[in-house]
Design a protein around this nucleic acid. Structure first.
Lengths: 337, 337
DNA sequence: TTGTAGGCGTTATCAC
DNA sequence: GTGATAACGCCTACAA
């Protein structure tokens, strides 16, 4: 049993209430003498207030829950790092949960967060393959009664939830237009998980760009994969079979997978194949050739998330909706046909 | 105010105590009838027990704190992911803290973890540049009174702390011996933060290998850097100035930095320069050429950490000391002189 | 200036 | 079978 406020009180010959007043620097005048005694006792007993007890009475935990599908994705890893660093600065801890797009794990975390009375929950790309899982999870979220801040669109259609997003249609559009402007006409898509909102939106952007060039999207040019290196690797042979001269990889990891299997095909990038990715993770400009990619403004997103968390802790009820814009970074993986 | 056990009690016409008994499936016989009533009320009121209150009386939180210097390092990211996934399976949440090797941030986190009464703290490579910070932090750790599990050696010299480590000397040895066996004699080191224990140990291994080949280590062959891509980039010109034909990068990120600046020097790897890294992060075999590296058995380490956490929650006081061995993965970045 | 008492939401020990 | 009652460790009126 650790030392409690009572121990301190006893040791310094005052009541627990007085100790509490002193610790919390309440605006009441207390004799210098007793203050000294109490501080001394605190130091000697190495007393630290039990935050559980404090949280119970104050009903605030200075803790937020953070849910993330793939924490090993460097883009996410960097985002989360920045969020954590800014939050600890405010004295707020974050409980992180990995979901791997698993609905039941997601629900488990959501409930666990709420049960622990986190002050807010940050969810990133909370979305599932199956419609039913989305609905199911949305209901849980609605019951939660905790401020929720989402990075990515509100696929749940929940009213009081703040969203911070990057224009995903624009991402697909920028990537595709860049390729089109280089003369490519058979542009393959190596997508992320097909039913996910991000995937759909990026594909929208792809179609939008094609339309601007008076081209009709060919469904055969899509490989329905996942947001992983392995998926990218697997997609190459299919897309080559469709005579793609360029591939829009739905994120940089997928692009890395394409790089990897390109070697097996003795294809050289960008001479034989142009590739553009999404996210601009830190390894993309080290790859050979450096990867052309669409960068999301990670810092701004992280800062906005933290800001929104802070506001909601401050009692702000209004939900915020912020949209950021992506940026095309042209590097060595794309060239004229 | 959320619904409490009292609300449920009132709604179902029983006492809070009874509700508690039912919820926790205590081995007491309770009439089927009241059980039904209570379950119904719970469902209708959407009642969920407040874990803060439960933790307060049970003095266990089912939460562990995890401290990590650089969560964006893919090796760490993967390790942490696995730990989280295995822990949530046991119903345990993890509060993660990024320290960036900052002593004051580390202390802040350590205290915050303890104040929140986490059941255990997992620290990874907790170590600092300055001796004084190490001592200082060690004192805090000693006062903590929480089971601590460390990935990496106990640089603190704290008695009751479990350690899970990978033989770091062996890492340096394997990397260097590989290079030596390829005929390299001027092998540069692009190190991680100089004062860190891992750095010193890997360098020990380097010296050990040289000694086996009857070579004396040349202090000029060391570039004292950091565990980052940038540091690797910066080290190249210095080490080339020392006529290095091969470089032992103290981790894969550093190796990536070397790849990056090699391009600027129009050096081709491994023809003009051999490189070996450490960690075998997922991008290393996609690099061109694929990076020869020393892999640490991440899965085994993660599993052992989780296992140790589980045991300590079970009340096990004994500290564990486990050592794993690294593995050399020969790929395309190393060749004969 | 300091102490008393009640409450935060649970669980646990006894009674009834 | 079920219900008081006292913890758990702290905060905060309200008294003194």
């Amino acid at each position: 049993m650790r030392t409690t406020i009572k121990d301190v009180a006893r040791a310094s010959g005052v009541s627990p209430a007085t100790v509490s007043l002193i610790i919390n620097q309440k605006p009441v005048s207390i004799s210098h003498e007793t203050k000294e005694k109490v501080y001394k006792a605190i130091k000697e007993l190495n007393y630290r207030p039990n935050q559980l007890a404090i949280s119970l009475v104050k009903s605030t935990t200075n803790t937020v829950g953070l849910l993330i599908p793939d924490s090993t994705n460097p883009f996410m890893a960097n985002l989360v790092r920045r969020i954590r660093l800014k939050l600890i600065d405010l004295g707020i801890l974050v409980i992180t949960g990995n979901t791997d797009y698993d609905p039941s794990l997601t629900k488990k975390y959501l409930r666990a967060f709420a049960d622990r009375r986190v002050d807010a929950i940050v969810i990133t790309q909370l979305d599932f393959e199956k419609e039913e899982d989305v609905i199911n999870c949305a209901n849980i979220v609605r019951e939660l009664d905790v401020p929720i801040i989402s990075y990515g669109r509100d696929v749940f259609n929940i009213s009081n939830l703040s969203t911070i997003e990057v224009d995903q249609v624009q991402i697909g559009y920028l990537a595709t237009r860049h390729l089109l402007s280089l003369g490519h006409r058979r542009i393959g898509c190596s997508t992320g998980n097909a039913r996910l909102d991000v995937t759909k939106l990026r594909y929208e952007g792809y179609k939008k760009a094609l339309k601007e060039f008076d081209l009709t999207p060919d469904p055969d040019m899509i490989y329905h994969g996942q947001f992983s290196i392995e998926s990218g690797s697997e997609s190459l042979s299919y897309l080559l079979g469709q005579n793609a001269t360029a591939i829009f990889a739905f994120n940089d990891l997928i692009a890395y997978g394409l790089y990897k299997s390109s070697k097996a095909y003795h294809l050289s990038i960008p001479e034989n194949l142009s590739i553009v990715g999404v996210d601009d993770i830190p390894y993309s400009d080290i790859m050979d050739p450096p990867l052309t990619t669409i960068a999301q403004p990670m810092e701004a997103v992280a800062d906005c998330i933290v800001d929104t968390v802070r506001k909601s802790l401050g009692g702000n009820q209004e939900s915020i909706h912020q949209i950021y814009h992506p940026i095309l970074k042209v590097r060595g993986s794309t060239a004229h046909v």
